[in-house]
């Protein structure tokens, strides 16, 4: 555990909690892509199956349980409790265009051809693109609430910090996981455009809106 990984995990946790609180306090999931949230629930479920087979640390187990629990709670709020506020018409990204190629890639390129390892790889690949329905929705409506941009910033920052963690681990532990690193790089690059808008607009007190 190094400082980049810890702050990455905390940034990830902050993102998840910001989103849950935003929906809960405003009693609305307007502007939130339910499809991205379902994908994140799938990501956590397929990645953390090792909760059933191996114990790494109390930190590891509790974070995994919190992430999975919050992911399903978010999906529940969007599709059940506050369904009336869900903006399905704008959440029109075709997720099969992500899930099918990512599934194929996980079967072809993995560390070990076993069910658990393929599902772990699938979750890594899927996570890297799971935000696309959300970014697509924002580009379609042309705007995002400020609290939603804070959520996206923390979520993007988390994988960027993990990149620093992997550089650290390579130098100090000789640890190298190319699948995680390349997927993490793709994931971070997808946020770059958003990071630019966040810094130039939201941090200066303006609402994030895209030119028509």
């Amino acid at each position: 555990m190094n400082v980049f990984r810890l702050t990455g995990d905390l940034s990830h946790l902050a993102a998840i909690i910001i989103l849950l609180l935003k929906i809960w306090k405003s009693r609305s999931c307007a502007g939130i892509s339910g499809k991205s949230q379902i994908l994140f629930a799938v990501v956590f479920t397929t990645r953390y199956l090792d909760l059933l087979t191996s114990f790494i640390s109390l930190y590891n187990t509790s974070m995994k349980l919190i992430y999975i629990g919050c992911a399903y709670a978010t999906v529940y709020l969007i599709y059940m409790k506050f369904r009336a506020t869900y903006d399905g018409n704008h959440d029109s990204f075709r997720v099969e265009f992500l899930v099918v190629p990512v599934g194929g890639l996980a079967v072809l390129i993995n560390h070990n051809f076993s069910l658990m390892e393929i599902l772990w790889t699938f979750s890594i690949y899927l996570e890297s693109v799971a935000i696309l329905p959300q970014l697509f929705m924002i580009s379609k409506t042309g705007e995002a609430e400020t609290i939603t941009t804070h959520y996206l910033f923390c979520l993007g920052l988390y994988r960027a910090l993990y990149l620093l963690n992997w550089i650290w681990r390579y130098y100090f532990e000789g640890f190298l996981d190319m699948i995680a690193i390349l997927a993490g790089l793709v994931q971070t690059i997808l946020y770059c455009d958003f990071f630019y808008l966040y810094v130039t607009k939201v941090l200066k007190g303006k609402k994030l809106s895209l030119p028509a």
Partner: peptide, 10 residues
Amino acid sequence: DSDDDEHDEL
């Protein structure tokens, strides 16, 4: 390098 497919990261 251990090949015990344990992923300690989240």
